[in-house]
Nucleic acid binder design. Sequence first.
DNA 1: TCCAAAACAGGATGATCATCCTGTTTTAAA
DNA 2: TTTAAAACAGGATGATCATCCTGTTTTGGA
Lengths: 225, 225
Amino acid sequence: MNDSPTTTRSRKRTNDPEGMRKRVLDVAEESFQARGYHASSIGDLMAAAGVTGGALHHHFPTKKALALAVIEERVASAVEETWIAPVQLAGSAREGVRMVFEAVAAELESQGFVRGCPLNNLAHELSLADPEFRMALAGIFSAWRQAIADKARADRQAGGDGGIDPEHFAALAVAVYSGAMAMAKTAQDAGVLRDCLNALEQGASPASRGGAKRRRRVLLRPGTL
Amino acid sequence: MNDSPTTTRSRKRTNDPEGMRKRVLDVAEESFQARGYHASSIGDLMAAAGVTGGALHHHFPTKKALALAVIEERVASAVEETWIAPVQLAGSAREGVRMVFEAVAAELESQGFVRGCPLNNLAHELSLADPEFRMALAGIFSAWRQAIADKARADRQAGGDGGIDPEHFAALAVAVYSGAMAMAKTAQDAGVLRDCLNALEQGASPASRGGAKRRRRVLLRPGTL
DNA sequence: TCCAAAACAGGATGATCATCCTGTTTTAAA
DNA sequence: TTTAAAACAGGATGATCATCCTGTTTTGGA
């Protein structure tokens, strides 16, 4: 923002490597999410973070190293906070999934636009670009699925009766969320999250049960952004 | 190389605007799928298609115009051939979905690698980049969902018995496929497609508690076409 | 205090990219 | 045959990009 006064030579500099690294990661996480990896130039990132080329290069020698740090430190923790912790705290895997879907849908609707799932956004762009990217992203998907499967397994043991295979249920939950977010991002409408949750909870069978289903109102005006 | 009747050394050029346009679209479709939009340079595309800059610029003035053509002419028809037509020909929406999942899984397994869903790949990278991209991609998602919903609606009328809302079922099917393909691409393993299909067909319920809930009977016998 | 390493500054560099421009050849209608 | 537009060739151009390089300042032990 502003530097030293004009007349006084306040050339005092305070090193703050952790803070500077954090600012770069903040900006990179945001830009990768909004514009993607290839569309985010490090020049833009430098300007947005207020960081010089030397400083950025000191902390992240290459753009790839920066992206890897974003994936491992930010995307992973976003999945952890949004999905893994809530599911572990929920009464059951099924209920945890429902709560996350509803929480995300509500957040997107109040926010008014959809930028998509950070993990899926980067996974689509980078999985085939570099094996290191791919492995880092695959690990996050794996942890995500595992957390849901663990919860479902615990449910099964507590309830005594076995339902669907926990691993399969976890794969389904992650897939539905990922795909619904893709559609929500493209349509800029979070309503599809509710549609999918609704279908999931009704048994996912198109013609197996008569009964009441209700249509939910979409709060977002289509066509915005 | 003596196919020309005249032995003059005048290099005859034959204009083939449609063929040249097709070659460019072929190469662009392939590269956008494998590397993405931003990672595909038009220089690479020119070399791969054997086309000069002037010719490429004549047919596609900008890279954006080329991508829009790929989306509208290639991605849309890929979804049509892979999903819409098979679902319409299937015995039911549910069965059509199952057949597509299995066909894609089998193809990916024999192929040995996973490049992902063309629509989702471009949707993730381009939906937020440009409103024209976003609308073109949203239209394909919409047609995809609509085809499945129409089929499910027809099933319901034919069967008399009403199940889940056809629109919701369609959203779920597209979401599960999209998300499963994202995971398959990142893991480079198509097995998750089978996991998700398995979970879908078992009712998507992770555990039933103490016999309070019974597995729902599905109207359709397996194996009918 | 001294000094080496870490932290930071900021310009340089070469490569790459999408687009544009001028000119030539082909095509089809007049 | 004439002619104008379409089709194609291929280099030019300026912008952008990621990385590197040289130098300066700060920091934390010794």
